[in-house]
């Protein structure tokens, strides 16, 4: 709303000026995030990078689930589409990563748009089922080496690293900063969308779709835009993933991956951006760091999902009554 106050509101959860965080919070947070990996060892830096990827995935799904209220349980398919597009463009056509990234994101977005059009009218849980099916279709296509381009069950390997000018991102630390840039941009973008005509339209649709339509909101357009933008975000995350690990497999499109992303949004608190970060910490960082219980990771996740739904159904960091009305 007000660019002069913009920076402090860049990362904060607020909106309502009376409750907004202090002005220095945003820049301070960014500086702290930049310093965070420096004292950590290489493994923890890789974990931070992974968290960045999942925050991006969570943010992108947050648009679809948190704002527009549609149960998308096949989000990992678009993650995989982004990763494979970047991989194929790089390996087959020799495109540099920075050029392939936007194409991968865009293609994932277009796929999201095409897929969602015939299914938008479905009721919540039916939508969830079709999206699961779509995720599985993508995974099977990848496994069966559709078009001879995806490398089958082994996937693709040897994808290049991102490079700017002559500088190539190699170490975990460099990749962390690379992803951090996209995470910060993503947070800013989602915050701006939330506090906009389109963002409000998503929430009207989530609250009462028929009333939204009757108040002049083109619900089909608004919902397909949510799917498009969410899929773009997932595709971007996929491209970033591919350009660091350089080996990708159809496992990216696994249902378990989709569920993880879905739970990041829901456990974190539907409709809240800090909730996505907290959700990522709970779903990804905790199991990663508690390696002793890694075998029981899924069981632990399952248990916490049930307990959360019973005792804290609004999520770890629910959406505060924000300043949309201010």
């Amino acid at each position: 709303m007000n660019l002069r106050r913009g920076f402090s509101r860049f990362l904060g959860p607020g909106g309502n000026p009376a409750r907004a965080l202090p002005r220095y919070f945003g820049p301070l947070g960014i500086v702290l995030l930049c310093l965070l990996p420096l004292p950590l060892d290489n493994y923890l830096r890789a974990v931070l990078w992974q968290l960045g990827i999942y925050v991006l995935l969570g943010l992108s799904l947050h648009i679809i689930v948190g704002y527009a209220g549609m149960f998308q349980l096949g989000h990992a398919a678009f993650y995989a589409i982004g990763a494979y597009t970047v991989g194929i463009l790089n390996l087959r056509a020799g495109w540099p990563i920075l050029l392939a990234l936007p194409v991968g994101a865009g293609l994932a977005g277009i796929c999201g748009y095409i897929v969602c059009r015939p299914i938008l009218h479905l009721r919540g849980d039916y939508l969830a089922i079709v999206t699961i099916a779509f995720g599985e279709i993508v995974r099977i296509l990848l496994v069966n080496d559709a078009g001879g381009w995806t490398g089958g069950a082994n996937g693709l390997s040897g994808i290049a690293r991102p490079a700017i000018g002559g500088f190539v991102f190699r170490t975990n630390l460099e990749h962390f900063y690379f992803v951090l840039v996209f995470v910060l941009l993503g947070i800013a973008a989602v915050r701006r969308l939330e506090d906009s005509r389109l963002g409000r339209a998503w929430m009207y649709v989530r609250e009462d779709e028929a009333a939204a339509e009757a108040m002049g909101i083109d619900t089909v357009r608004v919902k397909s835009l949510a799917f498009f933008l969410g899929s773009v975000g997932a595709g971007l995350a996929g491209g970033l993933y591919a350009s660091r690990v350089s080996v990708i497999s159809p496992d990216l499109a696994r249902f378990q991956e989709s569920v993880t992303i879905f739970c990041i949004v829901v456990l974190g608190g539907c409709g809240s951006i800090p909730g996505v970060v907290v959700g990522t910490l709970a779903m990804v960082a905790l199991p990663e760091l508690m390696r002793v219980v890694r075998d029981w990771r899924d069981g632990f996740l399952g248990l916490s999902m049930i307990l959360m739904m019973i005792f804290r159904p609004d999520g770890l960091w629910p959406r505060r009554r924000s300043g949309l009305g201010t």
Binding site: D295, L301, G302, M305, M308
Partner: peptide, 15 residues
């Protein structure tokens, strides 16, 4: 919430 809870139960049984 029940949908999430069901997914959670599935995770536990599998683990």
């Amino acid at each position: 919430p029940p949908l999430i809870s069901a997914l959670g139960a599935a995770f536990i049984l599998q683990a």
